[in-house]
Design a protein around this nucleic acid. Structure first.
Lengths: 218, 218
DNA sequence: AATAATTTTTAGATAACTCTAAAAATTATT
DNA sequence: AATAATTTTTAGAGTTATCTAAAAATTATT
């Protein structure tokens, strides 16, 4: 059994080291977790004894296979709860994080499987990040910035990078929401704005918008 | 802010001492929490310093006003989560407790208010126990055993006392579920069985059944 | 009312996680 | 390659919550 603290360390190592595969430095973890390097060393030793991380003095840490599995499971829980909060409880995209950080540590396999089914097996969270399935596999389709989508392609809005309330208000105003279908009609090399078709309406959006809106191919 | 452990102690005192008003002995708390009396003394001192309990050496503890409020809030969260698990995630009445024990400690006022609304402001949990509202007020209507209901009265099934799978299967078989309307038709003094009307069907149920089924007047 | 039994508290220790300050190792600079 | 700067680890200590064993207070029994 992993404690709450252990889980948070594993999560940090997972996120800092490209899914836990790369070596992560003690200081990087300390910064991410808002703690001291000496505390990290202590905990990393403990995690190494539990076979959750690979650790050699002064060489940094990476996750073992078990460690990755643990991390992916936490990510799965975190993202499913985010979907629940946004889709069912009227949370906005930028309100969910703190609560999901708490909910992700609830231990009950049945709970998370039933939640998954209740939410209709979502593949991505409200920020457009993929939700791993029960076996830890991620959907192949990755989110991309709208600005990278080729002309004449249709895609689905799956998240934002800039989550400032100004930006979210702008999206609201133009009926751009999670799940909206967007077709890229034309690009304007001059100012890098693009014209999109959304809800049957043509709309010109600036470079800032297309760079901060995540979409997924269909 | 209360820690998880503090919250569990407060909950125990609340349940043992008739909503925290009566004095509770150190040993009783120790037994309830599966810990040692000396640990209880230590924690109770800490809670007293935080003004959550009234404590005089060798005299037992009761909850202060703040303590009761804290306890009621935890009860509210616990019971709302139970409703969620049963009504939305296909948990059975007897599977919910352990998970709800974890979920009740999640800290987010918005979460619990939205959950309340999402569940349509339930007044009772799957065991028939009342859910306090935001201000800590309980519904006046209390659950009673079916055996206490007067002939010719209609009531609603709100919970069970015996939650053995045999009993739950029996209820299932006769279409007795949470929310079922039950009218008491006749009582049989001879073996204390009673005849009820449920889903338009007359059914004779034994003393055991009527003593382990909780209902509420309409 | 004195003694026995029980309950509760205190004292001292342990485990998990954290910290500060100093030492050791690594990396960067000249 | 030697020295400086940085990073990482160790050593020792604090906090929270727990425990065992012994002391103190309360309650029950004779």
């Amino acid at each position: 059994m992993t404690t709450l603290t252990e889980e948070n360390y594993i999560k940090a190592i997972y996120h800092l080291g490209k899914h836990g595969t790369e070596n992560v430095s003690t200081n990087a973890i300390a910064q991410e977790m808002d703690t001291k390097a000496s505390s990290v060393t202590d905990m990393v030793k403990k995690l190494a004894e539990k076979d959750l991380v690979n650790y050699k003095k002064y060489q940094g840490v990476s996750l073992t296979q078990t460690g990755v599995l643990t991390a992916v499971n936490i990510v799965r829980k975190h993202r499913l709860w985010e979907v629940f909060l946004v889709n069912k409880l009227n949370f906005s995209w930028d309100e969910v994080h703190d609560v999901a950080e708490q909910l992700e540590h609830i231990k009950s396999p049945k709970l998370i499987d039933e939640l998954d089914a209740f939410l209709d097996f979502p593949t991505h969270d409200p920020h457009g990040d993929p939700i791993p399935d029960k076996d830890g596999h991620f959907s192949k389709l990755d989110k991309v910035k709208l600005s990278k989508v080729a002309v004449n392609t249709t895609c689905t809005c799956v998240g934002v990078d800039d989550s400032s309330s100004d930006f979210l208000k702008y999206l609201d105003k133009h009926n751009i929401a999670l799940g909206s279908k967007i077709k890229v009609m034309a690009t304007e090399p001059f100012d890098e704005s693009i014209t999109i078709l959304i809800n049957g309406v043509h709309l010109s959006v600036s470079k800032h918008v297309s760079n901060n809106l995540f979409v997924r191919a269909n």
